Amino acid sequence: MLAVIRYTVPEAQAQEFAQQAHATLDTLAAQPGYLRGRLARSVDEPNLWALVSEWEGAGFYRRALSAARMAMYPLMILMLNEPSAFEDVYTQDRALQ
């Protein structure tokens, strides 16, 4: 399952936000069911950021959010209020040659 949390971050806060997001990913990575994560920034709208993580299932993700609440707290004011959990319906990996 894929988790995407988007943020609107003023340029003046970008460096501090990135540090806090790294700490959040570190906390999430220590949780059961975590597969991988990344912090991304829009190339078209530099104030738009995304914290993306992959999980073995929605239950793992939801429990991890509880564990990461304190690390995520400073970022919450910048978070877009929208659904963040997505179930895989179809995946296509690049073929190895």
Score class of each variant (00 low, 15 high):
Met1Arg: 03
Ala3Leu: 07
Val4Pro: 02
Ile5Ser: 04
Tyr7Gln: 00
Ala12Ser: 12
Ala14Arg: 05
Ala14Thr: 03
Ala18Ser: 11
Gln20Trp: 00
Ala21Arg: 00
Ala21Pro: 03
Ala23Cys: 06
Leu25Pro: 02
Thr27Asn: 01
Ala30Gly: 15
Gln31Ser: 10
Gly33Pro: 09
Gly33His: 13
Leu35Arg: 15
Arg38Leu: 14
Leu39Ser: 09
Ala40Met: 14
Ala40Pro: 01
Val43Trp: 00
Asp44Ser: 09
Asp44His: 12
Glu45Trp: 08
Glu45His: 13
Trp49Pro: 02
Trp49Arg: 02
Ala50Thr: 09
Leu51Tyr: 00
Leu51Trp: 02
Ser53Glu: 04
Ser53Asn: 08
Ser53Phe: 07
Trp55Met: 06
Trp55Ser: 05
Trp55Leu: 07
Gly57Val: 05
Ala58Gly: 15
Ala58Leu: 13
Gly59Tyr: 08
Phe60Met: 09
Phe60Arg: 09
Phe60Trp: 10
Phe60Ser: 15
Tyr61Leu: 08
Arg63Val: 11
Ala64Thr: 04
Ser66Trp: 15
Ser66Val: 15
Ser66Tyr: 14
Ala67Cys: 01
Ala68Glu: 09
Arg69Ser: 14
Met70Gln: 14
Met70Cys: 00
Ala71Val: 00
Met72Tyr: 12
Tyr73Gln: 14
Tyr73Val: 00
Pro74Gln: 03
Leu75Met: 13
Leu78Ile: 00
Met79Ile: 03
Met79Arg: 14
Leu80Arg: 11
Asn81Ser: 15
Asn81Phe: 03
Ser84Cys: 10
Phe86Cys: 11
Glu87Phe: 00
Ala95Glu: 12
